[in-house]
Deep mutational scan, measured.
Amino acid sequence: PQEEYKKRAKKALKKGDEDTAREALKRAGLSPDQAEEFIRRFL
């Protein structure tokens, strides 16, 4: 589910792994723009 992928993305970002985070967010159904926004907000 979407929440699970978002959790995964946050874990990846904590490790500084933005590529894995983007992949997880893409799987969560976010557009690339939404994924970038999510990452920017998190960092």
Rank of each mutant, 00 (worst) to 15 (best):
D33E: 14
K10A: 13
R27A: 14
K6E: 12
K14T: 10
R22V: 04
F42Q: 05
K15L: 14
K15H: 13
G29S: 03
K14I: 13
D17H: 06
A21K: 01
F38R: 01
F42M: 06
R8W: 12
A35K: 02
A12C: 07
Q34D: 10
E23H: 06
R8E: 15
D33M: 12
A9W: 02
K15A: 14
D33W: 11
E4I: 11
A21C: 05
K14H: 10
E3K: 10
P32V: 11
P1E: 14
D17E: 06
S31E: 07
K26A: 14
D19F: 11
A9G: 02
Y5A: 11
E4C: 08
G29D: 03
E37W: 06
K15M: 14
A21Y: 02
K6R: 10
E23Q: 08
P32Y: 10
A21L: 02
Y5T: 03
E3Q: 08
E36N: 09
L13W: 03
R41H: 13
P1T: 14
L30T: 01
R22L: 06
R22Y: 05
K26V: 09
E37H: 07
R8M: 15
A24W: 15
L13M: 04
K14Q: 14
P32C: 05
E23A: 11
P32K: 09
F42G: 03
K7L: 12
L30R: 00
E4M: 12
K7V: 09
E4H: 11
P32W: 09
Q34N: 05
E23V: 08
K15T: 11
R27Q: 14
A24P: 00
L25V: 01
R22F: 05
L43S: 09
K6L: 15
K10T: 12
F42R: 03
D33Y: 09
K26I: 11
T20Y: 07
E3A: 11
A24C: 08
Q34K: 06
A35E: 06
A28C: 04
G16E: 03
P1I: 14
A28V: 04
P32T: 11
I39S: 01
E36Q: 07
A24G: 03
A21F: 02
A12N: 03
K6W: 14
L25G: 00
R8V: 14
L13T: 01
E3R: 10
T20G: 14
P32L: 11
K11L: 14
S31A: 08
Q34I: 05
L30P: 00
A35H: 01
E3S: 09
K10H: 11
I39E: 00
E37G: 05
T20R: 07
P1Y: 14
K7R: 12
R22E: 01
A12I: 02
E23L: 07
K10N: 07
K7M: 11
P1V: 14
R40V: 07
L43M: 09
A35I: 15
L30Q: 02
F42W: 11
T20S: 11
A35P: 00
K10V: 15
A21Q: 00
Y5S: 05
Y5I: 04
F42K: 02
E37V: 06
A9Q: 01
E23F: 04
I39N: 00
Q2F: 11
E4N: 11
R8L: 15
K6F: 15
L43Y: 15
S31R: 07
Q34C: 06
D33T: 10
K6P: 03
P1D: 14
L25D: 00
D19H: 13
A24K: 04
G29M: 03
K26Y: 12
R27Y: 10
E37I: 07
K14C: 12
E37F: 05
E37S: 07
S31C: 05
E3M: 08
R40A: 10
E18I: 15
S31G: 06
A9I: 04
G29H: 04
Y5D: 06
A28Q: 02
Q2S: 13
E3H: 10
R22W: 05
A12W: 05
K15E: 15
R27S: 12
K15F: 09
R8H: 10
L13A: 03
K10D: 05
K26S: 10
E37L: 07
R8N: 09
F38Y: 07
E23I: 09
E36W: 04
K11N: 13
L30A: 02
K15D: 15
A24H: 15
K11H: 13
L30H: 03
R22K: 07
K26G: 08
R40C: 08
E37T: 06
R40Q: 11
S31M: 06
D19T: 12
E18W: 15
A35S: 07
F38D: 01
Q34A: 10
G29W: 02
Q2P: 11
K11T: 12
A12M: 05
G16Y: 04
G29P: 00
E36I: 05
Q34W: 04
S31V: 03
Q2G: 09
K26W: 09
R27D: 10
E23T: 07
R27G: 08
D19E: 13
L13N: 01
E4S: 09
E36D: 12
L30V: 04
D17R: 06
G29T: 01
E3P: 06
P1F: 14
F38M: 04
G16V: 02
A28W: 04
R27V: 08
G29E: 03
G16A: 04
R27P: 01
A9S: 02
K14R: 14
L13Y: 02
D19R: 13
L30K: 01
R40K: 10
L43H: 11
E4L: 12
K14P: 01
G29L: 04
K14M: 15
E37D: 10
E36L: 06
L43N: 10
Q34Y: 05
L13V: 03
E37Q: 08
D33F: 09
D17W: 04
K10G: 06
R22C: 02
D19V: 13
Y5N: 06
E3F: 08
E4R: 10
L13C: 04
S31Q: 07
I39K: 01
F38Q: 02
P32M: 09
A35R: 06
R41G: 08
E36T: 07
S31F: 04
R8Q: 15
R22A: 04
L25W: 00
P32F: 10
R41M: 13
F38G: 00
E37Y: 06
L13I: 05
P1H: 13
K11P: 00
E37K: 07
Q34T: 05
L30D: 00
R40E: 07
R41S: 12
E18Y: 15
A9L: 03
R8I: 15
Q34F: 05
A35W: 03
K11V: 13
R8C: 09
K26Q: 10
D33S: 12
F38T: 02
E23S: 07
A28K: 01
A24F: 15
G16W: 03
A12D: 03
Q34E: 14
K10P: 02
Y5H: 08
D33G: 09
K10S: 08
K10C: 08
E3I: 08
F42S: 04
L13H: 01
D33N: 08
D17K: 05
A12F: 07
Q34G: 05
D17Y: 05
L25Y: 02
E37M: 07
R22T: 03
S31P: 06
E4V: 10
D33L: 11
Q2L: 12
E18R: 11
R40S: 08
F42N: 06
T20P: 01
K6V: 15
R41Q: 14
K14L: 15
G16R: 05
D19G: 10
R8P: 02
A24R: 03
E18Q: 13
Q2I: 13
K15N: 14
A9E: 01
A28G: 07
F42T: 06
Q34V: 06
F38V: 04
E23Y: 05
E37A: 10
A28N: 02
L13F: 02
L13K: 01
K7Q: 12
E18K: 13
L30N: 01
R41T: 12
K6T: 11
E36Y: 05
G16K: 05
A24L: 15
R41W: 12
A12Q: 03
E3L: 08
K15R: 14
E18L: 15
R41F: 10
K26L: 13
R41P: 03
K7E: 15
Q2H: 10
D33Q: 13
R8A: 15
L25K: 00
K26R: 13
D19L: 12
G16P: 01
D19Q: 13
S31K: 06
A9D: 01
E18N: 08
L25R: 00
P1Q: 14
K14S: 13
L43D: 05
F42H: 10
K15W: 08
K11M: 13
D17V: 02
R27H: 13
R41V: 11
G16T: 02
R8G: 05
A35T: 11
K11R: 14
K10I: 15
A9N: 01
K15V: 13
E23M: 07
P32H: 10
L13G: 01
A35Y: 03
E3D: 11
L43F: 12
L13D: 00
A28E: 02
A21N: 00
L43E: 07
E36R: 05
Q2C: 10
G16M: 04
A21M: 02
E4W: 14
G16D: 03
